[in-house]
Design a protein around this nucleic acid. Structure first.
Length: 564
DNA sequence: CAATTCGGGGGG
DNA sequence: CCCACCCCCCGAATTG
């Protein structure tokens, strides 16, 4: 029986606190204490802290050496509940929620804070705490949120979603504090190998300048490779018509400028986005500390605020190195999205395929297709993404025949999107309303009943159904799978966090379906086992009883680039 | 001059 | 070969 307390910052670094009863209402007098960190440290029996926003409170606790077991993030909950109620887009701050409760004017959310490169911690940041809400208001909002959870389509799942999202906010703050081990010297070595030395004055490094010269030489005139319009014009004069200068399009052109141009693009990207100035801005004392934003995308995937932490180019990963005597345990969930589709659709055939730890696509091709593993993979991904053309389509009919419930699950989601309805992930995260819903827009009109693309016919043409509706259908089709995968990932993180709580190991990176744990070498085996167990547990807690397995590919390495 | 859009790359 | 889904980040060009 763990206690639940509400907590808010008070003026001068202090705290307001109150114990909460089983009904979520205050079960005692409000206490004011002079030191927030001590207030929490001295109450180790509290099992869940209810507070306005983890990002506002938890960095201070971490800086004071205090971790909490669980929390309830009122503003994260507000966002999820608004979404569930079809009101995504309304302000989500606690102050806004309080104003809505009392039918007062609702303050807009403060604008997102700019990225803060190189911050060692959030301790000294002037973080805009948003429009103020008194402690009593926060308590009222919390009590009302409990009621709204009860009114959700699946109250238990909705409660689990909020708990998981809250756990995610704790992980995000802890990962920011721990930082990803980053060897600036190795990074510079990589840059020098790829780009050559830098010239004074901040111009292009040597290798880029050489490649630009090669491109110009191939055209017989000066061409700026970083200006698409210039490149298209140059090819035009050479008799090659291009729609764009995208990599795949250039690759089909036989012209001596293509090779140096493609090399230029790759290196230019590294130079501008992960080059010397990125290093200067983002790496301090051997750590890269991005600010993670749980629930930063509509589907529940995380984003980061600055630093491009979720897009670290493969070649740069050599710089991510464990400390001496330590290791990186890098774990990647295997074929997560098809496994999630099996779990949510309860398709018997797909559950059977996903009920083993081995390669899912191989098993899929063995059972369902005459074709190769690659074809099976493309067909399945095509079904999940709403592919409209190309090779994957030819196996879609076979997929539909073998796994009718799985395909119907995503087809239903697509139809809902086209008709302007909402869809939800397994735990209840909800897609945003269609633009213009509620007005006299397309969402309110009856949709064409005579031509559905989902009955398997060839030759379907969109007719008058708007392209926007079709795009929205692809979005909702994918949302139920990608979002449910994000549900699972949150539960997996929460389980892993608990499992490693007594170890020296630290979670240092998370990217949709991949985690990195930094730990002493002797803990690596236990950590790998904890990850495996966290995946299993997350599968059971998220989806209930299911034969579907959620295995990882795990590597214990010294450099991130050695995993894979 | 600042803010926004575009084109292209990186990640899953 | 790509596509289809979710993103971030950059520089240049365009717009207010």
């Amino acid at each position: 029986m763990s206690e639940r307390w509400a907590l808010d910052e008070a003026e001068g670094g202090g705290a307001r606190l109150v114990p909460l009863g089983r009904d979520g209402l205050p079960a005692g007098p409000v206490v004011v204490e002079p030191d927030l960190v001590e207030a929490v440290r001295s109450r180790p029996g509290v099992g869940r802290w209810v507070w306005r926003a983890t990002a506002g409170v938890y960095p201070r606790l971490l800086a004071g050496g205090v971790r909490v077991e669980r929390c309830y993030d009122v503003e994260a909950a507000e966002q999820l509940l608004l979404g569930h109620e079809g009101r995504l887009g309304e302000p989500r701050s606690a102050a806004a929620a309080w104003a809505r409760l009392h039918h007062r004017p609702v303050p807009p959310d403060p604008p997102a804070r700019a990225a803060d490169p190189g911050a060692q911690s959030s301790l000294f940041e002037a973080r805009p705490s948003g429009p103020g809400v008194p402690f009593e208001g926060l308590l009222e909002v919390y009590a009302d949120q409990r009621r709204r959870h009860g009114a959700a389509e699946h109250p238990e799942r909705m409660g689990l979603l909020t708990a998981a999202e809250s756990a995610g906010t704790l992980v995000a703050a802890e990962m920011h504090r721990a930082g990803l081990p980053w060897r600036a010297d190795v990074h510079r070595e990589v840059l020098r190998e790829l780009l050559g030395e830098r010239y004074a004055g901040g111009g292009e490094p040597r290798r880029l300048a050489e490649l630009a010269d090669e491109v110009s030489a191939a055209f017989g005139r000066r061409v700026r490779p970083d200006l698409p319009a210039d490149v298209v014009k140059a090819f035009g004069q050479a008799g090659v018509r291009l729609r764009s200068t995208r990599r795949w399009e250039l690759a089909e052109v036989g012209h001596p400028a293509v090779e140096p141009l493609l090399a230029y693009k790759t290196l230019y990207r590294i130079w501008t986005a992960h080059g010397w100035s990125w290093l200067q801005d983002w790496v301090r004392d051997g750590r890269f500390r991005p600010e993670y934003v749980p629930g930063g995308t509509v589907s529940g995937r995380w984003t980061t605020n600055g630093g491009g932490a979720l897009q670290i180019p493969k070649v740069i990963r050599r710089a991510v190195m464990a400390d001496d005597g330590w290791r990186l345990v890098v774990a990647d969930a295997d074929q997560l999205e098809p496994r999630v589709l099996a779990a949510v659709s309860r398709d018997p055939g797909l559950m059977e395929v996903a009920g083993h730890a081995g390669d899912l696509y191989t098993r899929l091709s063995d059972r369902a297709f005459a074709g190769s593993r690659e074809e099976a993979k493309l067909a399945l991904l095509g079904a999940v993404y709403g592919q409209t053309s190309g090779d994957g389509l030819k196996n879609l009919a076979a997929l539909r025949r073998r796994f009718p419930r799985a395909v119907a699950y995503v087809d239903d989601a697509a139809r809902a999107g086209e008709e302007g309805r909402l869809v939800r992930t397994w735990l209840g995260r909800t897609s945003p309303p269609a633009a213009g819903a509620g007005e006299s827009g397309e969402a309110g009109l009856p949709q064409e009943p005579e031509a559905s693309p989902y009955e398997g016919g060839e030759g379907y043409t969109p007719g008058y159904a708007s392209l926007n509706a079709r795009a929205r259908g692809r979005f909702t089709r994918n949302f139920v799978v990608q979002g449910s995968a994000a549900d699972w990932a949150l539960l997996m993180l929460a389980a892993l966090r608990r499992a490693t709580a007594g170890m020296k190991a630290e979670l240092v990176f998370f990217q949709h379906d991949e985690v990195i744990v930094h730990c002493p070498a002797e803990e690596a085996e236990a950590v790998a086992e904890a990850i495996r167990a966290a995946g299993d547990l997350a599968g059971r807690i998220t989806f209930g009883t299911t034969p579907v397995r959620f295995p990882f590919t795990t590597a214990t390495v010294q450099r991130y680039s050695d995993a894979k």
